[in-house]
Computed example of a mutant assay.
Amino acid sequence: MEKLPKIGIPIIIAAILLIIVLAKSAVTIGSGEAGVLYKTFGGGVVIDEPPLGEGFHLVAPWNDVIVYEVRQQELFEQMKVLSSNGLEIQIDASAWYLPVYNDLGKLHQNLGEGYLDRVIKPAIRSAARSVVGRYTPEQLYSSKRDAIQDEIFAETKKILEKQYVQLNEVLVRDVTLPPTIKQAIERKLKQEQESLEYEFRLVTAAKEAEKVRIEAQGKADANRILSASLTDKILQDKGIDATLKLSESPNTKVVVVGSGDSGLPLILGNN
């Protein structure tokens, strides 16, 4: 085997070192991620520049890049909290969150990669305890679920705004009461529903009775007015009109004028 020229050995060493440097310097940021640059000899975490975006980057081999997911993420929490009367309630809730992109350096510097456990979980638990403590189990079970969801979101969001985290939504998926309390509430709600149905039937019956009374009163008033307006002369005229119409019938044979009672015409039929 021929010996390598003396000049070839340094070239090979330089090439190997270059490959190592390039390998240490090359950073690829994936989809939905961003990188925080840490300068070993330049002041540590870079907070006055935007984070490194998706794609390929070259950095000095003595620096470091910490990659964070910047997509929306979900936290699922089961929390045991106390209602206003001291009963233990279990709340199942989800929180949708993501780090504030342009504050990613500050997030890393102040909270680090464990920011979920350091601030988000404590924030949502604190908000849930505060909000649920304002309501009774009955309110939580029936009418106030949407309200507590909105209030937990508002209180958690207020805490996280100072922690470089953006909260998009809080969803209360389930409220679990002690079995005995749940059964008592369901019985009470059933009784209330039955009472409302009974009241509705009474109101409907009363309205129907009032309608019949008004109709009957209207008919009575109409008959009274009609009776008061009828005189003997009017009745006689109407009788004559009716007699004339009957006389036009082919079944009528003889009309004797003035032969009936009260002076009305008398109609004699075929028989």
Rank of each mutant, 00 (worst) to 15 (best):
Q163R: 13
K106C: 06
K182Y: 12
S143Q: 13
F56E: 03
E169P: 03
I124V: 15
K121D: 02
V59W: 03
L52I: 06
Q78T: 13
F56I: 07
L75A: 08
I159R: 15
P122M: 09
H57G: 01
G105N: 06
G105F: 07
V172N: 08
R71C: 05
V59F: 08
D150A: 15
I159L: 12
D174Q: 15
Q90Y: 13
E161Y: 11
P137A: 02
Y164L: 09
H57M: 03
N110P: 03
V165A: 11
E74Q: 14
E54H: 00
L160F: 11
E155F: 07
K80F: 03
A127N: 04
P122L: 08
H108W: 03
L52F: 05
K80G: 12
L58V: 09
A93P: 00
E77N: 06
E54V: 02
R134E: 14
P122T: 08
R145W: 04
I89Q: 01
G55E: 10
G112S: 10
E169D: 14
Q72L: 10
V65C: 05
V59K: 11
K144C: 07
R71G: 12
P51H: 10
E77T: 06
V70Y: 01
V175E: 07
P179E: 15
P51Y: 10
Q166N: 13
K106S: 12
Y115E: 01
L82T: 13
Y101P: 01
G114C: 06
R118H: 06
M79N: 05
V172E: 05
E151P: 07
K106Y: 12
L82R: 14
W62S: 09
A127D: 05
R129T: 12
V175Y: 06
P51Q: 10
I181C: 07
R125M: 07
T180N: 13
P99A: 01
K157Y: 13
E113M: 05
F153S: 03
V81K: 04
K158G: 06
S142G: 14
H57F: 03
V132K: 02
R71L: 11
D92R: 05
T156Y: 08
R134G: 07
L140N: 03
E69T: 10
F76S: 13
N63Y: 02
Q109A: 15
D103I: 00
K157I: 00
I148P: 01
Y141Q: 06
I89N: 03
A60V: 01
P122N: 10
V165H: 05
K144E: 12
L107K: 05
Q149R: 11
V131F: 07
L171G: 07
G105W: 02
K182M: 09
V132G: 03
Y115Q: 04
A60G: 03
V172D: 04
L140W: 04
T156S: 15
E151C: 05
S126G: 13
F153N: 00
V172L: 12
R173S: 11
V132W: 01
D174H: 13
G86F: 10
G133H: 09
W96H: 11
Y135R: 08
Q183L: 14
L104R: 00
S83T: 13
R173I: 06
R145N: 02
F76Q: 08
T136N: 09
H57I: 00
Y141A: 13
R145L: 09
E113D: 01
N168H: 14
L75Y: 07
V175T: 09
G86H: 09
F76G: 03
E77D: 05
Q163W: 00
